[in-house]
Design a protein around this nucleic acid. Sequence first.
DNA 1: CGATGCGGGGTGG
DNA 2: CCACCCCGCATCG
Length: 419
Amino acid sequence: MSRAEEREEADCVCSVGMKFTWDINDPKLPQVTNGPTPDRHLMDSPLRHKAVRPFQEWTDGYVRFIYSAEDKNAQRHLSGWAMRNTNNHNCQILKKSCLGVVVCSRGCTLPDGSRLQLRPAICDKARQKQQKKLCPSCNATLELLPCRGHSGYPVTNFWRVDGKAIFFQAKGVHDHPRPESKSETEARRSSVKRRVSSPPFTPKRRLIETQALGPALLSCVDPSDRISFIEPNFPQHYPAFQSPEPYYNPHNALGDTPATLQKPANPRLYMGRPGYDFQGYLTSPSYPMTSDLCDPSNAPGSPAALQTIITTTTKVSYQPCPKPPAALPSYQSCPKPPAGLPSYQPCAPPKPPGLPVCSSLMDDPSSSSYSTEVKVTEESGGVIKSLSFQPEPLQTKTERADSYDYRYAYPNTYRYDDY
DNA sequence: CGATGCGGGGTGG
DNA sequence: CCACCCCGCATCG
């Protein structure tokens, strides 16, 4: 996607020519084009045609994407972050909230210099079990760093199928390191399984596997197995450097996700946890925050004000899962879709109560760059703005010192684009 | 075994 | 009312 196009997508111009954009709760969502390029002639319409984009595994910030209904990853509502289903009592919009990341309570450093960042099990039960395990590196207990990136609550992701597209909207900025991607976790799991099932201990092979999957994979291994991981010469690609993409391919048979479009996590996110710095992140390229609030009245870093705007969109202009019985005659009930189909698929003509007026959310500006720190600065000039209290990316490397209460230390980091 | 979805139900603002 | 959370149930790989 060209620079110009990126710009156009992030076109929340808060002025006379205000260009509205969609919100996951909108009664009517933009139509989607097949091609990658938006229809310029309809740019001024809230319902202007939009183009689908390649799947984004690691979304962050207040962003919105439109994927092709054929996109396998989108169909599965995947995310690199560990997201669990959250009941929002709306069968048309699937809501998921972030579980955070599991880390070593002692914050030890792995052989490769990185830190343990496990993917929290989605299943509650499994997660509890997971937390009882010990750090594969230092034997300390594991700890779940909850996500509080959305006004103190976990970052939420919303999915909605509409027409030929799958709409995705995220709210909040992850205030914790990335966990392993889902595919990595799965890979590790199967790897461990293989190992267990094959008696002959083969150090060589294990090392190879490890290198392929990254240090974080060391985690859930049996303590007895641990020693083999303390191998020197550990590849240093995890977590920050690796592109999630390679691991995603297994799920990406259709190849709708150009690896080149992947972007790493933003180092700034972690300022929220001063006690936990991640070298990997800090050295990784950054990308401009994907905030998309454009209402000047929110500017002054008032989480409260911000929340107002943000959460406003969480509610729906839709009927919560229409119940067949009395009431809503004009609505069909949400019939259970045939196996395989998400039940939140549109099942009734959308009802438009309150039109979510320009939710002041602009369209996924995040996609605007997969560049490096420097480049970001260039591009963002005048567009991406940080709140005054927000330190520069690299300054976020708060020394973790000894204190470990990195949880409630700072408010969320917000960013506003396109004032 | 878990990942996912669904949806009933409780809670606090 | 709304946004969140918890929990159990069911399906599926």
